[in-house]
Write a protein that binds this DNA or RNA. Sequence first.
RNA 1: GGAGGCAUCGCCUAGUCGGCCUAUGGCGCCCGCCUGCUAAGCGGGAGGGGAUGUUGAAUCCCCACGUGGGUUCGAAUCCCACUGCCUCCGCCA
Length: 448
Amino acid sequence: MSDARSAWSEQRTCERRERDANAVESSFVIDLKLLRTDPDRIRRSQAMRGESVELVDELLAADEARRSTLSTFESLRAEQKSIGKDVAKAQGDEKQQLLERTKALAAEVKAAQAAANEAEARFTELMKTVPNLVFEDVPQGGEDDFTVIETHGTPRDFAAAGFAPKDHLEIGEALGAIDMDRGSKVSGSRFYFLTGIGAQLEFALVNLAMAKALEWGFAPILPPALVKPSAMEGTGFLGQAAQDVYYLPADDLYLVGTSEVALAAYHSDEILDAATLPRHYVGYSPCFRREAGSYGQDTHGIFRVHWFDKVEMFVYCAPEEAVAEHQKLLAFEKAFLEALELPYQVLDVASGDLGLSAARKYDCYAWYPAQGKYREVTSTSNCTEFQARRLNIRMRDGDGVRSVATLNGTLCAIPRVIIALLENHQQADGSVHIPAALQPYLGTAVIS
RNA sequence: GGAGGCAUCGCCUAGUCGGCCUAUGGCGCCCGCCUGCUAAGCGGGAGGGGAUGUUGAAUCCCCACGUGGGUUCGAAUCCCACUGCCUCCGCCA
C-alpha cells in the first residue's frame, strides 16, 4: 500500500467530530491565556506588524466585562435552578411564595443572560480582528524589509548568449501558448486562455508537482473552490484581505483565492488523533483573486491575474512540530524550483508584510529575465494555532485535547511558473528548452 | 425545486403528553487494581466556560440532547424558524 493510501485509510478510522457549540463560540484567535498572562507579548507583535497596540487594552477590558457579566448570570441562574427544584416538591402556600419569588428572578436571569451574551459577542468580535502573533525573530518592517536568506542558481547571461530575452507574453503568443486578447474579450482584464502547448504545460506541471508530492508522502485532494463564509473567516481571509475576495451573494459563498481555505476547513470541528499527525495534504484547485489593491500593477501578461490554478501543500501538526514542518515545506518548494532549473532566492518576509494568520512566512522569488528581477513564485506560511482555533481543529494526545498547528505552502502556481520557464529557458530562435524533470510529463525536450 | 422522515456522549442507544434527567445502558478508548501471561472482572476517566486556588492537587458553579428563538417558576421533552442527513419525485453534467 502506498503512503498516500495508508494515510487515507488511517485518517478515515481516526476522525473525530466535535459538535459542541460552546467550543466553537469560544475558539479564539489568539491564546486567551496569553492575553491575560502576557499581554505585552501581544503588544509587541502588534507593534511589529504595524497594527494597533491599544487593541490589547480594549481586549482586556472586553474580557473583564465578559467575565463579570457571565458571573452575574451564572449565580442568578444557579439560584433559579435551585428554587425550581423546591417548587416541584412544595405544596400550597409555600409553593405560591416560591413561585412569586422565582417569577421575578426569571426576568433577571433573562436580562443577565442577554448582557452576558452581548459582552461575549463584543469580545469575540474584537478577538477576531487580532492577527496571529509574529515570531519575534522575523525581520521587522514593511514590504521591502524582508531578509534574503538564500540564493540558488545564477541568472542566465543573455548578453553572452548573444540575444536579448523576450518577455513571457511575446514568447507565449508566438508559441500559441497564451492568448491574452481573447481572455480579455471573454472575461475582461487579467484573464487569459492557455492554449495548445500552454495548456499541455499546465497539465505537465501539475502532474510533475503531484508526482513529487506523492513521493514526499502527501495525500492528494481536489478541494471545492467555493466555500462558506465560516471557512473563509476561519482561514483569515475576511479581515483586511476581504476586498480581494470574490463573493457570490445569491448563494452566500466565496470563491477561494487558494486551496488552503478548503484544505484548512476540511478538518474543521474535528478532533484528530495525535497518532495521525502530522498530516500532509496536497491540493489542486483554481484560485480567484480580485486584485482590488493592485490597479495598474503587473498589468502585462499572466503574472497577476484574476484566475489561475495552483498546487498547494497543507500540513496539520502538533504545535511543537510546526517550525520543523515549515522548514520541510520550504525544502519541498526549493526542490521543485530546482527541478525546473530556475534561479531563485528565499526570503524571510518582514513582520509588516505577513498575512493575518501567519507567524512567519518564507517566499521564494524566482528570477524573471524580462523584468530583470526576482519576483514571488511560492509562499509558505506557518499559521501556528491561529487557523485551528478559528476553525476548531484540535488533537487528542497524552496532554488531553488542544489546538493543532496548520501550515501551507505553494508547490506550483501555474502562471508564474510558466512565465519563469518561458523566460529563463528561451532560446535565441524563439524555442523554449524544457527541464529534464518536466520532459517526461510534457513529452518533449523543447517547445517551438 | 416538491413531499416525507430523522437529529441524545467517539459509535450504538434509553428517555419525548414538562420537575424523580445530577441524561440510561452497551461497545470501543485511556488510567489504575487484580491476575504466571492474556482474556475476564472491579474501580475511575474522557466537552466548553467561570470562580476560589494550585503549579501540573482540589472544590464549587454555569453551559452543552443539531443551531437559534419562544412558551413556562422550570424544557432533551411543548411551539416556531433555520441547518444538516436520509428516502421518494422532478431537473441535470
